[in-house]
Design a protein around this nucleic acid. Structure first.
Length: 272
DNA sequence: CAGTCGCCCTGCGTGC
DNA sequence: TGCACGCAGGGCGACT
């Protein structure tokens, strides 16, 4: 579900509610989500630790404590929010961290249970973080640096944008939106992008993501931020989910194709 | 090695 | 109404 803008929205919501709080206890309902670690071991490890920082790297949420870091990846349907401990349990909640004062709880809701939770003792390398590519809202890479990464990749540019080691945080919705803005065909082999196309891509990546973040992210099905609020960027989608509708640039119908088992939306006329 | 595919899950909308 | 099917914002491991 959530891509960079949605994850950032969640982090901004929960961060002030978590910093300085101490974890009293933790519960994990789906052991598979912690594999290869075990719920019991992780619960014991985090108990009594104080949260110092809550950060995002790409789509990854990092809850940093005295002696280690809890990593949360929301994957398709995960949500994180702070709520009062007394509310009746949502049947889709899968993990809970109870906080010291005020009877608050950090809840992890994830109907499909594809989300991931992992604990890293301080000093342990976090591979997914170390392997993550440019942070789109912080780094504007040089054309030559992007070209170097693309030059021997024959894979189509759209599935490559989903690879988190180029830019971190781009997912299936924004990949289509970014390529429409950059006027690059999603089917074009990465190594065949011209310098001009790479320049447009470098412009489009942060532009699309920043605008989506300003709008509170996108809500296609049921995304909600840490306050339970829906995003509004879906109203501005140029192509995602708009197959057969006219392209706002040229009026030709938007196409839907499948690449690497995922839907791609684009305009064949203005994306070459 | 690079690229593709199946799969992990649940829930919802569509069409018969 | 009920059921089967396709599809979903992600990413990994097993293949070719």
């Amino acid at each position: 579900m959530p891509e960079l803008p949605e994850v950032e929205a969640v982090v901004r919501q929960i961060r002030p509610k978590l910093i300085g709080r101490t974890i009293q206890s933790a519960r994990f309902a789906i052991p598979r989500q912690l594999r290869p670690q075990s719920p019991r071991v992780v619960a014991r490890a985090v108990r009594g630790q104080t949260i110092h920082e809550v950060r995002r790297r790409g789509k990854i949420i990092l809850i940093e404590m005295d002696k280690g870091t809890l990593l949360v990846h929301l994957r398709m349907t995960g949500r994180l929010y702070v709520r009062k401990d007394e509310k009746p349990n949502d049947p889709h909640e899968r993990a809970w961290l109870s906080l010291d004062d005020g009877g608050d709880l950090l809840a992890f809701r994830d109907p499909r249970t594809l989300g991931v939770i992992r604990y890293y003792p301080a000093g342990t390398p976090i591979a997914a973080v170390n392997d993550a590519g440019w942070e789109p809202l912080e780094v504007v890479p040089a054309v030559n640096d992007v070209r170097a990464l693309l030059k021997r990749r024959s894979i189509a540019i759209k599935p490559l944008l989903l690879n988190q080691s180029i830019w971190a945080g781009i997912g299936n919705i924004y990949a289509s939106e970014i390529l429409w803005r950059a006027r690059v065909s999603p089917r074009k082999s990465a190594k065949r992008l011209s310098c001009a196309e790479i320049e447009r891509l470098i412009e489009a990546v942060p532009s699309v993501l920043r605008r989506a973040l300003e709008m509170g992210g996108s809500t296609v099905r049921d995304f909600a931020d840490g306050e339970g609020r829906a995003g509004r960027y879906q109203r501005e989608f140029a192509v995602y989910g708009r197959d057969d509708e006219p392209c706002s640039r040229c009026g030709r119908p938007i196409l839907r194709i499948v690449q690497a088992q995922r839907s791609t939306y684009f305009c064949r006329h203005c994306q070459k």
